[in-house]
Design a protein around this nucleic acid. Structure first.
Lengths: 214, 214
DNA sequence: TAAAAACTAGACTATTTGGTCAAGTTTTTT
DNA sequence: AAAAAACTTGACCAAATAGTCTAGTTTTTA
């Protein structure tokens, strides 16, 4: 689905599926589930509407396939971090990973944001449970870091919310950001914003920024 | 429009207009402009659909009226701050104001978020210009604070983006937050989150948190 | 190379949608 | 109290929409 998908070596079906997923991601990010039109997705994919419904049996199943793809994006090195790891390194990389997603997959981020804002009507209990247990595990590791004096005392929930909020903002609110900056964010602007954010969050936790991110 | 609107002393028209705006705010926040249904707004307002279109001549004009109301929410004391003011006081209050909006007007925040995510198709040039010049003014004041050594050197744009991102997140992503915390945010949770956020941002700028927010 | 599977696509349909119309009733004004 | 203005509401309509059906063409398989 990413912009850099290599279309060679793919069967017609795989190629079309990718075209459709790419197109749908944009339409859903631009209009939400209810607002997106199958015809608009087809036009964007340069295929007849019937083809879209041939590959994905309904608008809903297309949306769900896409959502599943997007949820996989959320995996990161932070998932396996333990008390033994260096919180400054782990958190800095986690923030950098999140910023990279905002830069490379803005439509995926927007689609996910819409899904949550709209009340998460399509995230099933399985995902919610999985997400909640991921959260519990991460909160636990952060608390242990705090107990060991590696990290200033802070609520781990709020810490993670702040990281998500700030990093995703660069994708979700890109239109406002570009308008107010007067120019779009280049790759090096993103690098700067990333280091700025890492500094803010880590300093706020009493951590020293790893030299790689200065 | 706020949940606490006093319905007494209002004419029938004003009362119904308020009912409709309240209902529409939720529907637009839940489904976006294209996805929202006039019938659903009418049902939520407990009025026949025709009445909705009597008070607001089209779905679009209802949306625009609402958006205009919401943009007024963005006004704050920070708008008139000058170099002479104490940045710690000003920024702490600004963050607290933003958090208060997220607590009291979550649907307004969500509706605005959808509008921006969807590419701001309904924000006219007048608003954009006004917003850009507000931004320029605020960036200027922050830069002067930095020049005077009142504030650590940081990009004023990113500082403001971070404040918006983190505070609005509590409204826009409330569903995710409630799910992961296992319980909804109470007023005192909000107070805690506000102080936590003020500490993070101000510390990150080399400022001391005013005692009121500790 | 023949059969099967995968793919393409126009025509069509049932339903939903935003919005209009016309015929009222209620409230306000004078 | 009469006239005007404000408000209410069911019936209706044209356009748009997700999805189906059928009849093909192309690609893969054996």
């Amino acid at each position: 689905m990413s912009a850099s998908t290599n279309y060679k070596e793919l069967s017609i079906g795989e190629l079309n599926r990718n075209k459709i997923l790419n197109a749908a991601e944009k339409e859903f990010a631009l209009h939400g589930f209810k607002g997106a039109r199958v015809q608009a997705i087809a036009d964007r994919a340069q295929l007849p509407k019937t083809n879209v419904l041939y590959y994905f049996k309904s608008k809903e199943s297309l949306y769900l396939a896409l959502l599943e793809d997007i949820l996989r994006l959320w995996n990161s090195r932070f998932d396996e971090a333990t008390v033994g790891d260096d919180p400054a390194e782990v958190l800095a990389h986690y923030i950098a990973d999140k910023m990279e997603i905002s830069r490379c997959r803005p439509y995926a981020s927007k689609m996910f944001a819409l899904e949550i804002i709209n009340g998460a009507p399509n995230l099933n209990e399985f995902f919610k449970d999985q997400h909640a247990s991921w959260m519990a595990g991460r909160v636990d590791v952060i608390k242990q870091w705090i107990d060991q004096g590696k990290l200033a005392a802070t609520d781990p929930h709020y810490l993670l919310f702040n990281i998500w909020a700030t990093s995703q903002h660069y994708a979700d609110f890109s239109v406002q950001i570009n308008e107010l900056r007067g120019k779009p964010m280049t790759q090096s602007d993103f690098a700067e914003a990333t280091n700025n954010l890492i500094k803010l969050i880590l300093t706020g936790c009493g951590l020293t920024v790893p030299s790689k991110f200065e």
